[in-house]
Design a protein around this nucleic acid. Structure first.
Length: 271
DNA sequence: CGAGCAACCTGCATGC
DNA sequence: TGCATGCAGGTTGCTC
């Protein structure tokens, strides 16, 4: 479900509702996510206060008194704010109930997501330590992408989606950013020149910021912490538009597969 | 090291 | 109606 804009939308929605709250108890209904949810959370979390909700890549970091809860939503994960008296829904796997009776509920039909716990620096966690730069950080620039891509034969779109290169760019925004930059997605990353990477960096930053401003993209079932959809779908130029006219030149948008992921582009505007 | 791809799992749309 | 197929905002961990 979520790329960086969707995770950031969820973070903004949740933060004011959980910060300064104290955990009363934790319920694990189905801890079988990508990695087993630590049963120890049931013992460890109660009594701890949530001090901040941050984001690194597509991970949400709930900083607590004596550790950090690291949450990834996978493809279909949802977090919603509930009351302890609300009815449970199908695929509600983990509930964190606060002392005031409010709760944070993790729902994930495909269970590709993860809920991890660390008492050390979360950025040093094995899942986070090797990640590439944040797209809004100064380290994400044309010189960096150019240098990283030399000698790489992989398609530039797959390269852009590689979290060791840059985090947060998933399947929707990779197609969108390449369209805006005028780069055809199947081009080997190592053949893309510096000037093109300059445009790509700008396009990625712009698209992600616009998507955050729109509250993310809802294709199927994305919703924020209060159940509202995102509105960036209206601004998508190529993703999901196979066979429709290019917004710029009216050529029909093409769909191909790259790295097992559907990829959309305009064969005229993108070279 | 990089590239390619199967796997994890459920739900939904489509076609016979 | 049923059943088989293919697809889905992600990531890991194999093989070559």
């Amino acid at each position: 479900m979520p790329e960086l804009p969707e995770v950031e939308t969820i973070r903004c929605g949740i933060e004011p509702h959980v910060v300064k709250k104290t955990v009363d108890h934790v319920r694990i209904h189905n801890g079988s996510l990508r990695w087993p949810v630590a049963e120890a959370l049931i013992e460890v979390l109660p009594g701890q206060k949530v001090n901040s909700v941050k984001r690194r890549s597509k991970y949400l970091l709930f900083t607590c008194d004596h550790g950090t809860l690291i949450v990834h939503l996978g493809m279909t994960g949802h977090l919603r704010l509930t009351s302890h008296s609300d009815a449970r829904r199908k695929h509600d796997h983990v509930e964190i109930v606060f002392t005031d009776g409010s709760a944070l509920c993790y729902n994930d039909s495909r269970r590709f997501g993860a809920i991890l716990w660390t008492e050390n620096d979360p950025l040093e966690h094995v899942r986070l330590v090797d990640l590439g730069p944040e797209p809004f950080s100064p380290e994400f620039n044309a010189a960096y992408l150019y240098q990283m891509s030399r000698g790489r034969k992989v398609a530039v779109k797959t390269f852009l989606m590689n979290a060791h290169v840059v985090v947060g760019v998933g399947n929707i925004y990779a197609s969108e950013a390449l369209f805006r930059a005028g780069i055809t997605p199947a081009r080997p990353a190592g053949n893309v020149c510096k000037v093109d990477y300059e445009r790509l960096v700008q396009s990625v930053i712009e698209i992600l910021k616009e998507a955050i401003a729109a509250g993310g993209t809802t294709i199927r079932d994305f919703s924020d912490s209060e159940g509202r959809p995102g509105y960036f779908k209206q601004q998508l130029c190529v993703y999901g538009r196979a066979g429709q006219k290019c917004v710029s030149c009216e050529t029909l948008i093409k769909q191909i597969k790259l790295g097992q992921r559907s990829t959309y582009y305009c064969p005229v505007c993108q070279k």
